[in-house]
């Protein structure tokens, strides 16, 4: 059987909110390592990889590796029924085609369980090689979300350019053009407000803002976002999940023909 218990159940609610708009159906892989997911968006342009390590849960039992296919919109509907302070337990018995979500209020005076049907999903698992990135930007996640939102009112794509001056986000459209430059700023009172740019080589890549905006749904999970870029490689936009793992989005760059 498989069982996990997460006292900070709101984390799981936030994780679902950050992937459900990008992916419709996905296989969750349960193993002794943890609870993970890898899924592509329907147009195969973006990929999302989630890992929640087993040590991060208050209780984690996985007798044998298990794949649970779930419709993420339905899963999000069920997790929405959990209170923000609720403890969430996910349970699945071997050989059944359902998963149970149990929600306990902090004072244990309300206990709910929701059973959801699992589905068979034929999904392609991709091998993601470890890459050396030419530029790595760490910045406040809310700032990145704001930039993506602001630029999407100007154009459909963002050009992200890292030089020794800093990182430039540019968009162009029918009404005009916009450039937002963020400089390295490590001298802040709180580390989560810092912008750190590690650059081996200057790099410039173009991405669809629709996807970037979708990735920023993960902003409530982490104060900082890490953006890793190399020429001719997908960008990686990473949000840490409270010391227990991460959610990483990979987006293929747009190329000029």
């Amino acid at each position: 059987m498989f069982e996990l218990r997460l006292v900070q159940g709101s984390l799981l609610k936030k994780v679902l909110e950050s992937i459900k708009d990008l992916v419709n159906d996905a296989n969750f892989d349960c193993s002794s390592t943890g609870f993970s997911l890898q899924a592509m968006d329907s147009s195969h342009v973006a990929l999302v990889a989630l890992l929640l390590r087993s040590e991060g849960f208050e209780h984690y039992r996985c007798d044998r590796n298990l794949t649970m296919g779930m419709n993420l919109a339905n899963m999000a509907k069920m997790l929405k029924c959990a209170g923000n302070d609720d403890i969430i337990t996910i349970k699945a018995d071997d050989g059944t085609d359902t998963v149970t979500f149990m929600f306990e209020s902090p004072s244990q005076d309300k206990i709910s369980d929701f059973e959801m049907k699992l589905m068979d999903i034929d999904s392609e698992h991709l091998g993601i090689p470890e890459a050396e990135y030419e530029a790595i930007i760490r910045m406040p996640s809310a700032e990145f979300a704001r930039i993506c939102r602001d630029l999407s009112s100007i154009g459909d794509t963002v050009v992200i350019s890292v030089t020794k001056e800093g990182v430039r986000f540019s968009a162009r459209g029918d009404i005009g053009a916009a450039n937002i430059v963020c400089r390295q700023n490590a001298t802040v009172d709180k580390p989560e407000d810092a912008t750190i740019i590690e650059m081996q080589e200057p790099v410039t890549l173009t991405f669809a803002l629709r996807y970037m905006n979708s990735f920023t749904k993960a902003t409530p999970l982490a104060e900082q976002v890490t953006i890793s870029m190399s020429s001719d490689l997908p960008v990686v936009v990473e949000y840490k999940v409270a010391g227990m793992g991460y959610i990483r989005y990979y987006l293929a760059p747009k190329i000029e023909e």
Partner: peptide, 14 residues
């Protein structure tokens, strides 16, 4: 014309 590359072309299939 811009062309979006597919993620499958970057990563190896398992």
């Amino acid at each position: 014309v811009n062309q979006q590359q597919q993620i499958t072309s970057f990563f190896s299939k398992k």
